[in-house]
Every structure is written in C-alpha cells, then in structure tokens.
Design a protein around this nucleic acid. Sequence first.
DNA 1: CTCAGTGCAAACGATTTGCAGGGCC
DNA 2: GGCCCTGCAAATCGTTTGCACTGAG
Lengths: 133, 133
Amino acid sequence: MNVLDSNMRLTSQRQVILEELQKVTSHPTASDVFDMVRKRLPRIGLGTVYRNLDLLAERGVIKKIEVGGEQKRFDGDTSPHYHIRCVKCNRVEDIFIERHGELEKNAASCCNYKILDHHVQFSGICSECLPEA
Amino acid sequence: MNVLDSNMRLTSQRQVILEELQKVTSHPTASDVFDMVRKRLPRIGLGTVYRNLDLLAERGVIKKIEVGGEQKRFDGDTSPHYHIRCVKCNRVEDIFIERHGELEKNAASCCNYKILDHHVQFSGICSECLPEA
DNA sequence: CTCAGTGCAAACGATTTGCAGGGCC
DNA sequence: GGCCCTGCAAATCGTTTGCACTGAG
C-alpha cells in the first residue's frame, strides 16, 4: 500500500476492496466487487466502492479495463497483458502473450500521434460455452 | 442497402442515418449522429437513431466500436482496421496497418477459446493536442 | 483535532423501451 | 392493409455526487 499518497488514508474499506480484487482473476465489475466486499463489511456503500476503485486505478494500484459490455471491469493484476472475452457468457480472462512493440511502431509510422499505449482485445467462445454453441 | 433482410424496411430515417454515418470518418456517438441527421430530418427522435444504429450494426452494415469513454461510437467503414484515441480531446481515428493474424494464433495457443476476432486500441496524443501537452 | 473518507440517497447521462399512430411494401 | 417503424416520454442501468457524520492520522 506504499504506492499511495501520504494524504491518502488507509481505511478498512479501501484495504478490503484491494484485497478482494487482488484475490481473484475474474475482472469483476464495480458491483461484483461491492458484493465481494459486502461479505466482510456489510455496511459499505456502493458509492464507496466506486470511489475507491477509481482512486486505486488512478494511482496505478489496479487497472480499470473497458472490454465490450456495459459495465467497466477492474483488474488487480497490473502487469502488462491482453484480454479475451467470451461473447456468450461475457467472462473475461487474461491472455499472457508477449506484447507486440511492433504494433506501436507500425501505428506510429502511419499517423502523427504520440503513441502512449495499446491494448489488444480478443473475443471468442470459452471452453465452457463451446459445447452449446 | 442490399445487405438488409427483406423484412427490413428502407425508411428515410434509416437511409439518412446510414448516409450521414458513411459520410464521415469521425466515429461519431449516437447523439453526434442524431445531430447530424436532425439537420435533414428535424422531427427524428433519438430513440430512432439508437434503434437504427444498433440494427445496422447487427447486420454488419456499420460497426459499433467501444473505445474508452462513456459513449459508444459508430464507424461507417467496416473494412478491418484498428483505432487510436487521443487521451486529451477524445478524438478517434483509424489506423490502417495490416492485421496481425499472428496475434490470434498466439492467443489461441495459450487459452482454450475458439477465437472469433480481435481488435487493437491505441491511445496517444494527437498532433493538435501535442503542442499544449 | 482535522480533514479525507464514508453511508445514504438523490442526481445524472447514456441507452432502452412501451405505446399509439404512421407509412413502407 | 398488415406490420415494421416512428416520435415521444417514461423507465432503466451504470455511475457520480452532495451532504452530514465518522474515524484515521
């Protein structure tokens, strides 16, 4: 928790939210996290969850990811990796293939942007949904 | 407009929405399209715009793209290409580099999904925003 | 003590939907 | 003439915010 500013307090809500998020690899939405955290802190409010997730994401302690779908999702793993989403059940999983630096180089040569980052989104059908497809 | 089902009617609203969208490369949001279309059809409703954009996207006549930000955007160009978003002004532009088939192959070998598609999202600072950065 | 953080509820913005009337095929 | 589609407004959903209170430092 040393990444946080000195004027950022270590509340139990903040702590539990981070712990619960880092415990899973399911890329939960804010209300998923709310449900997870509520088991340990029954009086926590949904607003608090949103506020803390945004704050932690801003500091880079966690990542806010925007795959398809309506709700944003959060990832406790900040190491660089890609994602795949199942178009049937909307599950989101990690794809650990090496980042293609080449991609940013190619993009840079065909537009006059200062490129900061890139992300690759795969979509497909997960092994669990495949049989019924 | 031959891509449409036989039971899909060619209303003026539908026609104008498609025309206006194909006229630009700015990846407008639904309400951007609403504003564009309203100049020609002042009585059109926002709901109609949403309904038609979704419908056209479902048929593959246009594409619904989900870059960062709150609103979804629409692209009249359905040829395969990537996108870059300016983190300052939120403009979205096309990146025409050849698709990396390799990406899907690599992803397939590290997860047991049937991979259907992939998309690459770049983020950066556009030439217009760069001076003030 | 102080002020960042909280719970709660109301507000908000994007999108969806129910419905009665309208116009394409 | 049927029924898909529209305009309109209300409803919904995710997320944000105002406020008075609480508790970490």
